[in-house]
């Protein structure tokens, strides 16, 4: 599995954890009756907190991932002497993490999928309000569609890395 695929999986795991944590916390509190119907302040605050958790969490996961990657390379290169190993790790890491034109094309195509899903969620949320649902439902549909959109973006990237991608 390539570096880019592993990196995408790491981000997806982070995104999935944030999504699960949000659903457990927010809907758990809502279903227990602790939150009043239409309490927009609670939902907006919770979403802001989880956006922050998501950003920090994914950064931390990426740091841990890169440390693990460096350790993995060091284990592979351990045959060479101590003076050489740092240079070898650096060179291998540099060659591994390079982002080239195919990565950029895949990123472009998969982010299109993410934006489409987020857009569909936004329109769906507006339709729900028109149909008489509360603004809390609209907020949740919008927030969840962004989260699901980012997960689908990662899944699309993995699909393109496996199957290949055409620029046409």
């Amino acid at each position: 599995m390539s570096y880019q695929s592993k990196k995408t999986i790491t981000s997806m795991v982070g995104g999935a954890l944030v999504l699960a944590a949000y659903c457990i916390y927010a809907f758990g509190r809502y279903s227990s009756g602790a939150i009043a119907e239409g309490n927009l302040k609670f939902w907006a605050g919770t979403m802001l907190v989880f956006i922050g958790i998501g950003i920090v969490g994914i950064i931390l996961l990426q740091i841990v991932f890169h440390i693990a990657l460096s350790i993995g390379i060091a284990v592979k290169e351990r045959a060479c002497d101590e003076k050489e190993i740092d240079k070898r790790i650096e060179a291998t890491l540099e060659a591994t993490v390079i982002e080239d034109e195919m990565d950029k094309l895949i990123e472009l195509k998969s982010s299109q999928i993410g934006f489409v899903l987020a857009g569909v969620g936004f329109v769906g949320a507006l339709i729900l309000v028109v149909l008489g649902h509360s603004t809390v439902v609209m907020l949740n549909v919008m927030y969840l569609s962004f989260l699901v959109g980012s997960l689908m973006e990662g899944a699309t990237s993995l699909y393109f890395y496996g199957k290949g991608v055409s620029s046409g």
């Binding site: 390539s2 570096y3 880019q4 695929s5 060659a95 591994t96 390079i98 982002e99 080239d100 034109e101 195919m102 990565d103 890395y161 199957k163 290949g164 991608v165 055409s166 620029s167 046409g168």
Partner: peptide
């Protein structure tokens, strides 16, 4: 100046390079 992943994809015909 690309990743090994890209060379694999080009070689296998899964990606047409620029």
């Amino acid at each position: 100046g690309v990743s090994r992943q890209t060379v694999i994809a080009v070689e296998a015909g899964k990606y047409s390079p620029t």
